[in-house]
Nucleic acid binder design. Sequence first.
DNA 1: GCTTGAAGCTCTAGCAACTAGAGGATTCAC
DNA 2: GTGAATCCTCTAGTTGCTAGAGCTTCAAGC
Lengths: 135, 135
Amino acid sequence: MTQSDLRIGDLARRTGVGAATIRYYGDIGLLPEAGRSEGGQRHYGPSHVERLTFIKRCRELGFSQDDVRALLTHADQSDASCEDVAQLAKKHLEVVRAKLATLQVLENSLEYMVHACHGGRIEDCRIVKALANHD
Amino acid sequence: MTQSDLRIGDLARRTGVGAATIRYYGDIGLLPEAGRSEGGQRHYGPSHVERLTFIKRCRELGFSQDDVRALLTHADQSDASCEDVAQLAKKHLEVVRAKLATLQVLENSLEYMVHACHGGRIEDCRIVKALANHD
DNA sequence: GCTTGAAGCTCTAGCAACTAGAGGATTCAC
DNA sequence: GTGAATCCTCTAGTTGCTAGAGCTTCAAGC
């Protein structure tokens, strides 16, 4: 029990990640297991803060758990080339761009539908008609 | 067993929705229950084709199951006003736009990270560093 | 030292929207 | 009548958490 030890609530407040989520990350092996007090409560050190911050940032950027795992593994090998990391980031950027494109199409369709509707009875509703037709 | 009856595989092929998903939609009440043959196999009619197409289109546009349920309910009341439908569509359009905005921010961050990386050792990798820092 | 309330523990179940697989029954064409 | 294709039900898995029940531990104040 060093002075720098944090209980799960402290770590949660410091990183902005919920306690339940921190436990979950421990369970699935994303975050190394914490030390335990005699009573069984988790104690975290500075390395956990760092790692959890890394994980959080990855998740905010939309990386999947598997991606995060891979990124962590690479990041741990300090003298490896960072090509793999860059590759992962690029791949993810592609995914994000694909999603963006899809959403933009959706936006257009929805906008069209919303504009096409001028009130009236459902029977004549252009939105409903647009939804009922396949191309 | 009318001539127009479809077995689940036929309906799947005709609509592009998988058989398992069709059964699932029946289970959760999105699609009305099909008639059954003596042996217990499902038989669908033209109304099912229509409704499933509607559902599929909604899902493609990103509407949630609850939204789809609401849209179907409204669409069924042929002489109601279509204001509620338009309202749902507008609300969904907002959601889509919010997602777009988030993704665009992500895209920028990722792009920046990818460009910042010029190869080298992990230890110096700007991507890893960007991921490790909270703002 | 004792009390008390906050914070922690484990375990289970739930969310959305399907998808996959096991193991068996039905249907249909030949 | 046979064999292949299709269908049936049921269960469990996916992703990434989140909520709750019921119990224990910790830390601060008296």
